[in-house]
């Protein structure tokens, strides 16, 4: 029995080592490198790289841009999913409709980004169609929808990747919480459809899905392949920016890449803790008091 117990403890230790050690080893090395305590350019403790990175306008722009892209993409995906679930509720009973929504989940980000590039770029399908219909008279007249300053291509790809999942996810909540029945009861008690939507359907769906929404905002923020194909140098999303800096020939850029990675990780952890239930409940208590 004792042997079995010590084996279990040993296995738990292995688990912690496999998850925690690689993450914290990377974390520690990045911190030491960014403080000038290790690496090829080591010249003793210095805050030079941190102060340079913290004053770097483009880094903050990248973080802000990534956050904005993620929030807009997830918001649009959520709205599309909500529309499909509430307006086409009966269609989900049909096998073809249900299967149809699973299909985009088979697409990796790389492939979806490639598709968006071939369809929405200046030389893509839409541009060619517009030319044939006489809507544009030159390839340059077609609006920039990929590699653009507003991240339209990145957002479009993210929405195409995320909305099918949100639709299936919200539909599961819709069924599990029996929202259709609640809506009918509310309306038979005199509530207008608009009220039933705001006070029942949306409120319950949001309550049950908000943690997934936040997780998806973080995932989209950390996406790499899509901005690599459809983004540009300025503004650039944070993940390709970190990788760019880390892979440059200039050795002075590497500590800055580590600083950016650490700041990004810190902000993600902050976002998660801000959204944690305990935090929300803390503020609720304060408000009631």
């Amino acid at each position: 029995m004792r042997k079995a117990n010590s084996l279990t403890k040993f296995l738990r230790l292995i688990y912690v080592l496999l998850i925690v050690v690689p993450t914290f080893a990377g974390f520690t090395y990045a911190l030491l490198h960014s403080l000038g305590l290790t690496g090829l350019l080591t010249d003793g403790l210095t805050l030079k790289y941190w102060s340079e990175a913290l004053r770097d306008f483009y880094m903050w722009k990248s973080i802000g841009f990534s956050f904005l892209i993620a929030v807009i993409s997830v918001f649009l995906s959520f709205c599309i999913a909500l529309f499909l679930v509430l307006k086409l509720t009966d269609d989900f009973q049909k096998k073809w409709f249900h299967r149809l929504l699973f299909l985009p989940l088979c697409f990796p980000a790389t492939v979806m980004a490639f598709y968006v590039m071939q369809t929405f770029s200046k030389s893509g399908f839409l541009s060619r169609l517009s030319f044939q219909f006489g809507w544009i008279d030159h390839i340059e007249s077609f609006p920039e929808l990929t590699n653009d300053a507003y991240g339209i291509g990145i957002m479009l790809t993210s929405v195409l990747l995320v909305f099918p999942f949100f639709t299936l996810f919200l539909k599961n909540i819709f069924d599990a919480e029996r929202l259709q029945d609640y809506g009918l009861i509310a309306q038979s008690l005199g509530a207008k459809p608009r009220h039933a939507f705001w006070k029942i359907s949306l409120a319950l769906l949001w309550q049950k899905s908000k943690s997934t929404v936040v997780l998806y905002i973080i995932f989209v923020m950390g996406s790499y392949e899509v901005p690599l194909l459809l983004g540009r140098q300025n503004p650039q999303m944070i993940t390709p920016r970190i990788v760019d800096k880390a892979q440059r020939f200039n050795l002075h850029d590497i500590p800055q890449a580590y600083v950016m990675a650490l700041i990004y990780l810190f902000l993600v952890l902050l976002l998660i803790s801000l959204m944690s239930t305990r935090f929300v409940q803390f503020f609720k208590k304060k408000t009631h008091a």
Binding site: M221, I242, V268
Partner: peptide, 24 residues
């Protein structure tokens, strides 16, 4: 808590972790 720990690599972005692991 063990299960929560397993989410760490996903939340911290695999690519960013890749940058941190590259040295090792």
């Amino acid at each position: 808590y063990y299960i929560s720990l397993a989410y760490l690599p996903y939340i911290l972005s695999p690519v960013v972790l890749g940058v941190l692991w590259h040295y090792f």
